[in-house]
């Protein structure tokens, strides 16, 4: 028996059962489509929106915010963490900051962002950056502080110090942690982005997935709401399995740094 194949079979079965139940229960129990439309009608709405292009527009709006926010967040987190490792006493500063801000849900600072920047993209990006930065810093910090001392010695032996040592030894050595930080950070960011759109609507004129769900709800288009939820799940799967797993396979797994 092949284990990975077994696992995949179990997973596909679970998905099939959920989909089948979703399709059959509303029909058999004759539940109103405003409460729970069957799977096929959610897919029909999704298909329709994919054809008329509105799905791609709202996806693009959400993802473009997400990519910019996550990218900026990662950059800030890494520069901040690396800086704190170079400057004496910096580690305590970083730990304190992470301790203060990590427990704060990013969505909670949205009202503040709106006060500062109004209903603009900048507000959304600020919130997404906030959602990424602390998780990423925490993981980068763990990665940097659990680096094998001998690798640091190897770098120092070659005359590397400060930023050069960080750039050529610490980054790669901490990559397994940086990737798990990215995993956690992106998931926070995606939820935060959708939540922000759901609660406060479109920012900067372009409506994203969350905004679409918000509109569908106000029109009692439950099929549309489900189509939005499906989209959120699908994006999650694509990023998680399509992108992040591929990066892991081609780097830290290939190098034997994680199992």
């Amino acid at each position: 028996m092949n284990k990975p194949i077994q696992k995949t079979a179990v997973r596909l079965t679970v998905v099939a059962v959920v989909v089948l139940a979703w399709e059959l229960v509303p029909r058999i129990a004759q539940i109103s489509p405003i409460v729970l439309p069957p799977f096929s009608s959610a897919v029909a709405v999704l298909w329709e929106r994919a054809l008329d292009g509105s799905l791609w527009q709202s996806l693009l709006a959400s993802l473009s915010l997400l990519v910019r926010g996550v990218g900026l967040g990662i950059l800030i987190a890494i520069v901040m963490t690396a800086g704190c490792f170079i400057i004496p006493g910096g580690r305590e500063v970083l730990q304190t900051l992470v301790g203060l801000f990590n427990p704060l849900p990013a969505i909670a600072i949205l009202p503040l962002a709106l006060l500062w920047f109004g209903f603009s993209e900048r507000s959304m990006i600020l919130v997404i950056v906030f959602s990424v930065v602390w998780a990423m810093s925490l993981n980068a910090y763990t990665g940097f502080s659990t680096i094998r001392p001998v690798l640091v010695d190897v770098g120092r032996n070659l005359g590397l110090r400060g930023p050069r040592l960080i750039a050529s030894i610490y980054f790669s050595a901490a990559l397994p942690h940086l990737l798990s930080g990215l995993r956690i950070g992106w998931a926070f960011a995606w939820r935060t982005a959708v939540a922000a759109e759901l609660v406060y609507g479109a920012a900067g004129g372009q409506g994203g997935i969350g905004w679409q769900i918000y509109l569908d709800r106000s029109e009692f288009n439950t099929g549309g709401v489900f189509a939005g939820l499906l989209t959120i799940v699908l994006v999650g799967l694509v990023v998680e399995y399509g992108i992040l797993n591929t990066i892991e396979m081609r780097t830290v797994k290939k190098w034997g740094m994680v199992n």
Binding site: R148, V150, L151, D153, V154, N157, I169, S172, L175, W255
Partner: peptide
């Protein structure tokens, strides 16, 4: 140049 005892002195990447 130093050669250490640990096998894991090579950069794994």
């Amino acid at each position: 140049m130093m050669v250490f005892q640990n096998f894991d002195q090579l950069l794994p990447w």
